[in-house]
Design a protein around this nucleic acid. Sequence first.
DNA 1: CAACCTGTTCGCCA
DNA 2: ATGGCGAACAGGTT
Length: 280
Amino acid sequence: MPELAEVEYFRRQWNAGLGGRVREVALHSRKRVFRGTNTRELIRCLTGARLLGSIARGKRMLFRFSSANATPAQSWLGIHLGMTGRLQCAAVEFRPGKHDHLVLYQRDRALVFQDARQFGRIQFDHGETPPLWWDEATPEVSRMTRGFFDTFLARHARPPIKAVLLMQSGFSGIGNWMADEILWRAKVAPHKQTGELTSSERARTFRATRFVARESLRIIGADDSDLPRTWLIHERWSARGKCPKHGMVLRRTTIGGRTTAWCATCQSSRAKPRDPVEVA
DNA sequence: CAACCTGTTCGCCA
DNA sequence: ATGGCGAACAGGTT
């Protein structure tokens, strides 16, 4: 699930534990999700600490905890959900299954991180200020400026536009379904070289990027509601998916190493019949 | 049984 | 040196 809006939804799942003290930490320390992380330190610092707050940026989340056990500083838990990660709030009797790699037990609940495929990652740090790995350089995609957008596209003129939309250093939080949704709305062919986009295609892609980010955050981020039936997302999963506009079967290709669904009619790289035509 | 998958990173090659 | 591509990661689902 986890792209921008799903990440925000999962972040909120742990809100029930805000202000609560962690009584016990249970984790699978040798699992890949903890690569590079000192799990012994994580357990020592989080046991007895209160969950004070959290933020999400793109596909990453940062949870802040109070000091505990005579440790002087705050603690920071970074979570990336990868492909199959999820957060949930469970009853205090919760017993971890084989994919529940981290569980924070509070008095009245259990905060659970689950990730079957383990492309996700958990990081930990202890200190007064946010850790170095919590990089805030990339702007929120929902508030991206046209200037940043144009500069980023100009710097990556060679690859297809779909691949550029997937680059987290520019489009933080955009994943495979969002990139397809944006290009379908912008009427831009996903395989078109970024440097070849016309100025109106760039303008439409910029507007569609902010629209898809804001609307999905508003609708999915709040309570995981379904997006309107008019969105491409509902059709792009199956090989029989159809364009929501006129029912044409979507084409499927691999771009930037990812499955890409698009409408050959809406997103033609040639001039569309209704576009102004130059006359000799 | 084989192919596919909402993500990132690394090694190789241009 | 930089940029881009495919493979690898691990396991569930179709």
